[in-house]
Design a protein around this nucleic acid. Structure first.
Length: 274
DNA sequence: TCCCAGGTACATT
DNA sequence: AATGTACATGGG
């Protein structure tokens, strides 16, 4: 179905923004997978997009997934022109949105992400989905690959060591396995944690094996959609060091520091921090 | 061959 | 509390 979107919305930038790992170019559009839902989407004019789904699926899931009730244009508008680097970064990254992704999928994805580059993260996650092998569409991607769901905790927990290691996770095998078992056993109640305060949520996440401050912040920003979380990875640390020696003005952009972080991350990575 | 990738756990001081 | 180091794998 055709959807008109007048706010910032750029599929290519979102796909390359590093917040999602199963959002890829497919033919003349994009193939998007979130847990056990899948969508082909393509741009058909300046502000029109073809969502290959029913009206019901759009209203009940994808509209929220793309966070279409929030104006990212407005959030961009908060940026002080005197903050030249952030302003440039936001112009460059205009069209990025923070997707409303699932806490479980994000937890595993960002546990896997540590000390890996983005193509490698995507490859590992895709292998993990393929090893479990739960197909969710009869169609295939443009490259001929089957479309698999993201594994549930139980599906992941029962993978053999051999199957798990075939996903190229390296030393992260044990983190993924433990996280799956913790969620399965109810020791980590990710969905109940939605109600926790920011501080309590952070505290709970940091107790998980393989989750440090950076991964926890990614989980809070992308998995819990708390837009003020500001993950600091190697790229952001370079930005802060080189462009904000006097400190970044977190107070000014509250409660949207996470959106600013995405612009900075995307810009610094593509532009080499020139 | 060396270096790096959306870091974290663990030991040592 | 602060600092140092090992860690699996793949690509440039």
């Amino acid at each position: 179905m055709k959807i008109k979107i007048d706010d910032d919305f750029d599929l290519e930038k979102i796909a390359d923004s590093g917040q999602c790992f199963r959002f890829n170019k497919s033919g003349d559009g994009y193939s998007v997978t979130a847990l056990d839902k899948h969508l082909f989407i393509k741009q058909i004019s300046d502000n029109e997009f073809d969502f290959d789904c029913s009206k019901k699926d759009y209203e009940e899931f994808w509209r929220s997934y793309f966070d279409l009730d929030v104006s990212y244009k407005k959030i961009r508008g908060m940026i002080d022109k005197n903050d030249e680097y952030l302003f440039e970064a936001a112009e460059y990254g205009k069209g990025i949105r923070i997707l409303k992704q699932d806490p479980w999928e994000m937890l595993i994805s960002f546990i896997i992400s540590q000390r890996k580059n983005i193509p490698a993260i995507k490859a590992s996650i895709e292998k993990l989905c393929a090893v479990v092998g739960r197909e969710i569409k009869t169609e295939k991607n443009a490259n001929g690959d089957n479309i698999y769901a993201f594994p549930k905790p139980g599906e992941m927990a029962k993978l053999s060591d051999k199957e798990l290691s075939s996903c190229g996770l390296g030393y992260r095998d044990k983190y993924v396995k433990k996280a799956a078992n913790d969620v399965l056993s109810g020791e980590a109640e990710l969905y109940k944690w939605q109600d926790l305060s920011d501080d309590d949520l952070m505290e709970r996440l940091l107790k998980l094996f393989g989750v440090g401050v950076k991964v926890a912040n990614c989980e809070i920003l992308f998995g819990y959609h708390r837009l003020d979380a500001f993950p600091k990875d190697v790229w952001i640390n370079r930005v802060l060091e080189l462009k904000y020696p006097e400190g970044f003005n977190f107070d000014k952009y509250k409660p949207y520091n996470g959106v600013m972080q995405q612009y900075l991350f995307f810009y610094s990575r593509s532009n080499g921090l020139a």
